[in-house]
Design a protein around this nucleic acid. Structure first.
Lengths: 188, 188
DNA sequence: TATTATTTACCGAACGTTCGGTATATGTCA
DNA sequence: TGACATATACCGAACGTTCGGTAAATAATA
C-alpha cells in the first residue's frame, strides 16, 4: 500500500478546522484542499461521498471525542462536583480555551433539509441527555435536570459565540468555573 | 420615478431572513433573488456594493432596530428591573421567540479578514457596553457590570443556538425571565 | 425628455465532482 | 527470489453548474 501524504488523524484535524471556521457552505473544496494539502480528486478518494461525507465524518469524530474525553468523566469516580470540574477541564482543551468554535454551531446554518443538520441535532441532543444524568444526581426532578443541562449547553455555546465575535475569552473561562453550580445548584 | 417592485422595508426584511438563515457565504445571490423577488441586476441597482453592501445594510438596520426597540427602554423610566423586563419583552419579539437566529452569530463565520466581521464585532461590543450601563445601576463595580453584561449576551446567543439546533425554545424563554437577575444580581 | 427601476443576456471565475492516468505498496505463484 | 497482478494514494485536467457581477435595453414615472 502506498504511503499516505497525510495520515487519517491529521487529515481529519485539518478538515475539522476548516468546517469549524467557515461553516458547511463556507468550507469550499479549494479551502479544504489547501488546508489538507490534498488535491480535490484525492479528497474524493478518501471521502467517496464528497463534501457531505467529509462533514459527516468530522461531526462523528467530534462526537466521539466529546463522548470519550468530556462526557466519560461524568460517569467516573468522585463526587458529582468533582466530575463536573473534570469535564470543565476537558472542555477547556476541547475548545482551545474558547478559540475553537463549536461544530454544532457552525454546521447548523443553512436550509432545514440540509443533510448535516439532523446529525448536528442528534449530537447536541445526546449531549444534553448525558449532562441531564449528572444534573439529576443533584437530587432534582428529571425535568429540572434537563433544564439545567440545557442551560449548561446554552452557556457553552453562548460564551463561544461571544469569544468568536469580540475575541474575549473571559466569559468562557468564567462559565467553565461555574459549571458545577449551573448543573447541580448551589451546593458544590 | 418608476414604482418599486418591492419597497425598501420589505426588501430588507427578506434580505435579513436570508442572511440569518444561511450566513454570509450560504446566502447566494440566487437565494437572495428568489427570496426578494428581484433579479440579480436589480439587486445591484439597489445595492451598488453588491452582496457585501447588502450584508452591511442588513446588519446596520438590525443594529438600529436593537438600539431603538431593545436598548432604548434601558434608559427610560422605571426601576432597573422593570426596564430590563421591558427589554426582555422586546427581545422576545426581536428574535421571534427564539425562532430567528442572531445575525451576530450567522455573520461571524469565515476568515478573519472578512469585511463583515468587524461590523459584527462592533455591533456586539456596543450591545455589551449598553447592557453594562444598566448592570452598573445595581451598584457593582464597572468590571463586574461588564461581566454581567457579557453573561447576558452569552446566554442570549447560547439559547438561540440551542433553539436553532434542537428546536427547543424553552431555554430562550427561561433566559429572558432570568435576565433581571442575570444583570442585576439577586435583588430584583 | 430626463430619470429611475427593472429586465434580459451575458461575463470570467469558482463551485463540487469526475475522469484518466501514475506511482507505490501488497499478495501470490512459479 | 523474481515476476506479475492487484489495490491504494495521489494528481492534473476537465466536467457541467453556479457563483458574484456587469452592460445594454425596456418600461414607467415625473
Amino acid at each position: 500500500m502506498p504511503i499516505t501524504k497525510v495520515n487519517e488523524e491529521e487529515l481529519l484535524d485539518r478538515l475539522t478546522d476548516v468546517f469549524r471556521t467557515y461553516g458547511y457552505d463556507g468550507a469550499s473544496l479549494s479551502k479544504i484542499s489547501e488546508a489538507t494539502g490534498l488535491q480535490r480528486a484525492s479528497l474524493y478518494h478518501r471521502f467517496p461521498g464528497g463534501k457531505e461525507d467529509m462533514a459527516k465524518v468530522v461531526l462523528e469524530r467530534a462526537g466521539q471525542w466529546l463522548f470519550n474525553r468530556v462526557l466519560a468523566p461524568l460517569s467516573g469516580p468522585g463526587t458529582p462536583a468533582q466530575r463536573i470540574r473534570n469535564m470543565a477541564n476537558e472542555l477547556h482543551s476541547f475548545y482551545a480555551g474558547g478559540q475553537n468554535c463549536c461544530l454544532l454551531d457552525s454546521l447548523s446554518f443553512g436550509s432545514d433539509d440540509n443533510a448535516i443538520r439532523q446529525h448536528v441535532q442528534q449530537g447536541m441532543s445526546a449531549w444534553v441527555n448525558e449532562l441531564a444524568k449528572v444534573a439529576q444526581e443533584g437530587r432534582v426532578s428529571a425535568k429540572k435536570a434537563r433544564q439545567k443541562a440545557q442551560d449548561a449547553i446554552s452557556q457553552i455555546q453562548g460564551t463561544l459565540v461571544v469569544a468568536r465575535v469580540i475575541k474575549d475569552y473571559g466569559p468562557f473561562e468564567r462559565m467553565l468555573a461555574e459549571l458545577p453550580t449551573t448543573l447541580l445548584g448551589k451546593q458544590a
